[in-house]
Design a protein around this nucleic acid. Sequence first.
DNA 1: CTGAAAGCGCTTACAG
DNA 2: CTGAAAGCGCTTACAG
Lengths: 332, 332
Amino acid sequence: MKKVTMLDIATKAGVSKATVSMVLNKRDENISSDTRNRILQIANELNYIPNSLARSLSTKKTETIGIIIPDITNPFFSEMARAIEDVASNLGYNVIFCNSDNELNKENKYVKLLISKLVDGVVFIPGGKSNENLQILINNNVPFVLVDRYVEGFEKYYGVYCMNKLGITKAVDYLVGRGKKKIAFVRGPHSVEISTQRLEGYTETMKKYALFDEKLIFENEFTIEGGIETTKKILQLKEKVDSIIFSNDIMAFGGIKVLIKKGYKIPQDISVIGYDNIEMSEFMEPELTTVSQPIYEMGKCACELLINIVNGKAIDEKQVYFEPDLIIRGTA
Amino acid sequence: MKKVTMLDIATKAGVSKATVSMVLNKRDENISSDTRNRILQIANELNYIPNSLARSLSTKKTETIGIIIPDITNPFFSEMARAIEDVASNLGYNVIFCNSDNELNKENKYVKLLISKLVDGVVFIPGGKSNENLQILINNNVPFVLVDRYVEGFEKYYGVYCMNKLGITKAVDYLVGRGKKKIAFVRGPHSVEISTQRLEGYTETMKKYALFDEKLIFENEFTIEGGIETTKKILQLKEKVDSIIFSNDIMAFGGIKVLIKKGYKIPQDISVIGYDNIEMSEFMEPELTTVSQPIYEMGKCACELLINIVNGKAIDEKQVYFEPDLIIRGTA
DNA sequence: CTGAAAGCGCTTACAG
DNA sequence: CTGAAAGCGCTTACAG
């Protein structure tokens, strides 16, 4: 069975394919309702599905956006991806996902792929110092919106962020308010800007309270394993810690697992605070106290912003900043 | 800055675009190494990125596959999606993701969208009785591979499955072997075949041991909330239960949360077994005993199978069945 | 070893 | 109210 094309419909209806094109695209002000109906009916009978490649080649628009994301398997990103797909879908766009694993060369490969597919724009969650890859997008006139992670040198481009320093500040304030003094902080990798911003929030606030101690700062990947590893290290400190702030929720999961296993009571023996407020954090026991980022909102906002740009709408603010919130639950 | 095309390269190199096309596509046996090098260098200088829409329109191949999946936010599916993307990417394919939320009309919309984008094939995780949507794919000659969930009437099409009945049988056998007698079973929704298959495993095995009691069967969605809700109901039974088998891991998460909160010791008071073995199940405390499906393997297999079909390779078995395994950890 | 030409399935001024 | 024609950027026999 061959695919049915506009030409098939046109022949069957005894008109030209230009006419078919017009009615199928609702630019049919000037078409007699007679031929319009005939065409519509035939298209329907034949189960016509337009070839959007041909269409896009001609119009230079694909109604497709790309999204470059570190790893769809990470709940933070899958929730965000979901938001983006939902919004895009509602606005008549569809999305191509690309997992970069925070590797610049994978990003590079995908950037080129997306360009070659003529995506109308891309939502980009950079894996690190992605300057070169962003530049390729710029050179090819494909608009993008950065999400979640700053890239030095690209501060003036479209972006949707959450205030990282503020988030950790809120966490430290809260712990200190509850009488905590030995607060460990587990930062994320140096390659991503937000890790450093969160660290700054910690450092400044701890100093404000004259509680700062460099030995309480640890570093690891934003993974469960990272949380596990580092927590074991923290427990070996000769100076006992009374709380731990992890730079994201899945690290905190790993940490909590270790703590429970070693018989610590949370939050009685040690308080734990995560970061992100992924869905799962509410469903563990004890429920995770965490700094909430409006993940779905951020994804939604980024996608709407991008599609507005694509459609040439006026944009009032090129960067939007969301405010994080401390969600107090069972672990601190 | 206008996008650079083959014509630009051709003009600059003083050759025709046919020649450029040949060398860029490595069909350059007959091209003098002189002109080949010239073309390559110019393409490089100009940062040429091919327009794959134009290419695909001509070749009828897009090197793109679609994947229709219930919800990328569900770890089972995101792990599978990741596997599919990895394999596809390695084989030079990229993938368009579509979340169906198990709704047939969303599936329908996406099926048409994928066809209109001329995807080479689709990996399809049906949300239910997807017969009509599969038929559209068939009518349009786009090959597909079913994954995880059977669709009645499509047993003879390509598919990658895991033996559901066997999985639950193993779980029941194990519990009975440990002296459990009051084993509750939480099934998934009727609309998806695998729920029923898992139930069959439960029913048959419980009957084998003369332990079957219909009142121990519950039904809910494959979600954390589903697990929470049903577990509360189970705890209200006047007859106390000594174990619960959940039809997937995230239901089990919800269940465990309720149990811990109400002060039950796991597995001393109540044993819990999940299904899937998503990554997270290993990282909770206590670690989840669960029936493991080779999620990544299944995704990988489905994607390889699809791409083999697309490329006209001979396929020995149209259906592949993986065997589930009971992973004994801390909750049973 | 290389080019001219047709074709992929659409859209879009333009003409009538 | 409708059609002929050119064009989008490639690929692919075919000819020379």
